[in-house]
Design a protein around this nucleic acid. Sequence first.
DNA 1: AATAATAATAGGAACTATTACTATTTAAGT
DNA 2: ACTTAAATAGTAATAGTTCCTATTATTATT
Lengths: 109, 109
Amino acid sequence: MESTNIHPTADWIFNQAKINIPNISLGTVYRNLKQLSDEGDIRTIHDGAIARYDCNKDRHDHLRCKVCGDLIDVQLFDDDLRKIVKKKYKFEADDVEMTIIGTCKKHTK
Amino acid sequence: MESTNIHPTADWIFNQAKINIPNISLGTVYRNLKQLSDEGDIRTIHDGAIARYDCNKDRHDHLRCKVCGDLIDVQLFDDDLRKIVKKKYKFEADDVEMTIIGTCKKHTK
DNA sequence: AATAATAATAGGAACTATTACTATTTAAGT
DNA sequence: ACTTAAATAGTAATAGTTCCTATTATTATT
């Protein structure tokens, strides 16, 4: 999983794992992903209705390109924004899920 | 649906609708929500694995309180951030899905 | 008002991602 | 080797959502 910079789904991981462990079960994949996620070794990201998994442990945001479907890691939400949330809405932010949908640089002439 | 400031699920709407239209079908609810969403009359928000619907048509973000579960409408992503995304990542932002998870002011002494 | 054409609906089946369950296997400790 | 505990495969079950079809409602046409 670390060998890729994509943000794989459980199903993708299941299929990759089958190459080396032919009779691995999908339940095992989900169970282990959940454990890794709970321990903070990976991150679970909600991409619409399905879950993707991210080896990038640092808090970060995503750009999703609507042309090629790429999901790109970026850093946008910072302490400044956290402070604004705190001041303006009296809300203590623990975690942020931000995905920006648009067009990536590959498709701009 | 407009009578509430919550962010209802399809199921909640279905149950509310049944009060007045006892034999309404869940498919009808989904179909009409999809249509309204496509036309831009409501917004679909992805809350984890399930979809919620929002009458607030203006682009906005959400704060989700992990204590009481409240989903609060806020305005955080602005043109400044859009410009940063454009400049830093050469990414043309069309839409943003941002949910900040934390603790709302109701639970801070 | 009767008829034809079109759209919307109920009800349920089908689908997809995920979780739960259980008998069996693997590993660890003694 | 034997016991205990943990992990797994395989499958059933669940939840949210979409798809399908026969039927019903709506609109337009004469």
